[in-house]
């Protein structure tokens, strides 16, 4: 089985298990303030790391390419309070332009 299948199935099983457990365990188990605190921080850490790795690396090598332009445009779009689809689309278009003509 390819790692893509393992990842697809494994992610799906755990995702559902997490959702279902929330509906099934007593509220006091997960309402501890420390858990709430950690839960608010984990997405910030993981998503920021993903932004960085997806923008500046390929496999295990660091590199700067058209994605830097895409990311910069996304930051500008977010600063201008653009909605999510506009952010993604403007990043894609600017990156594609740089890739094709440079």
């Amino acid at each position: 089985m390819s790692i893509f299948w393992i990842a697809t199935i494994g992610t799906s099983i755990i995702a559902f298990a997490l959702k279902y457990s929330g509906h099934s365990v007593p509220e006091r188990w997960l309402s501890h303030p420390k858990i709430q605190q950690i839960n608010a921080l984990i997405p910030i850490a993981l998503l920021s790391a993903l932004v960085a790795v997806q923008s500046f690396s390929e496999k295990s090598k660091l590199m700067i390419d058209q994605r830097l332009v895409g990311l910069s445009v996304a930051v500008i779009a977010l600063l201008l309070k653009a909605p999510f689809p506009v952010v993604v689309l403007s990043a894609a278009v600017s990156s594609a332009v740089v890739y094709r003509w440079l």
Binding site: S55, R67, A74, A92, A96
Partner: peptide, 8 residues
């Protein structure tokens, strides 16, 4: 670039 922009 769409993927890192989506994460951002």
């Amino acid at each position: 670039s769409a993927v890192p922009a989506a994460f951002l």
